[in-house]
Design a protein around this nucleic acid. Structure first.
Lengths: 187, 187
DNA sequence: GCTCTTTTTTATCATTTGTAAAAAGCAGGC
DNA sequence: GCCTGCTTTTTACAAATGATAAAAAAGAGC
């Protein structure tokens, strides 16, 4: 997926503004298993995923807890670093060989104050992410593990093919053993 | 709490931009039990809470599930309506007599495209909400009910005084019976 | 195709949480 | 004071989920 299309899918901007963003980006490539962002660091890179899949995980009580997957068209960023310039709580690693577009968040921040179209693009990006996160929260809080698994199967069947079940279980907030039990019911 | 201060706490703007926002707002007052926003409706009002406390709840499987509380300084908005102009999934009701500042989201949207300071204010508002929601999600997913209750007690002790336990239990993603059990342990 | 490693499933038992119903506590109206 | 309705706590039992260990299956490298 090309960067121009990824940007348009968030919010279509006039060509001049889009060009400014495109010029900030550089295409990078990382193999499976590469750490894109590190917990405890103030990160200044933001990535758009052109090809591949990544996961975000936070170390909690000595365990790595997966709370997000990103694939083609999605944006990889430590919100804590990006918004508050503080150390983030998440590691983000590639789960496949990935092709990404990398942007510097400081330079992006400058554009937000220079170009109103880009500022609105940034606003709409955050708003969309917010809705998705809020829906995840509600689903997490009020649906059973089985219901959440079925919803994931419907909404993102490809994830189950591309990501190992231990990570999926963590994402669903259950143990791998529980997930395995749930899967066994449907066969 | 005055509106000017609420806006500044999100992101301080030059006076001219702030005035534009202030002019959009009107002060309103509602008694305890008033429904500010309705699920299934495309809402065009957004509120800043000057005084009082509100809760957001979604009807899921015939139950009302509380997933958010707002108090002084916070913003009441149906993200679905505000961002996507679609029917929202939440009801939001006052739990106390409330003093609020009401804004029309359509007019606010116009300002986003006219005034870059306001656009950035809107961006930062969404980004902050996003971080909070993401942290709630992680806490919800990876901490036990007891840990979540203790965290709530530390972070928002006033909530426990101002909100009935049935709503708190729902907010924590557990039943009222479970919450009662947890509370009994600490005595 | 075989070996070694990683991932997934199965089995058992302990713990947590849910459901339902009853009891206790509290506040307002008469 | 004493109903009445609402909220909170308690109890008993059922269901879901977790922890641990071990077996089975799947994949990677040679």
């Amino acid at each position: 997926m090309e960067l121009s299309q990824i940007l348009d899918n968030i919010y279509p901007m006039p060509e001049a503004s889009k060009l400014r963003l495109l010029q900030l980006a550089r295409r990078v490539h990382y193999p499976k298993g590469h750490l894109l962002l590190r917990a405890g660091k103030i990160e200044t890179s933001l990535y758009f995923i052109s090809k591949g899949i990544v996961r975000a995980y936070a170390p909690v009580n000595g365990q790595d807890l997966t709370f997000w997957f990103g694939k083609e068209g999605q944006t990889v960023v430590s919100m804590r670093s990006y918004v508050e310039h503080k150390a983030g709580y998440e590691n983000i690693e590639t789960l496949e060989d990935c092709e990404l577009f990398e942007l510097n968040t400081i330079e992006l921040g400058r554009l937000f104050h220079k170009d109103i179209e880009i500022a609105n693009w940034g606003r709409i990006f955050a708003e969309r992410e917010l809705i998705q996160t809020e829906e995840r929260l509600i689903s997490q809080q009020f649906h059973s593990a089985t219901e959440r698994y079925r919803a994931l199967m419907e909404d993102h069947p490809d994830l189950l093919q591309r990501v190992q079940l231990g990570y999926i279980a963590s994402y669903l907030g259950i143990t791998q053993v529980s997930l395995s039990r749930i899967r066994a019911e449907f066969k």
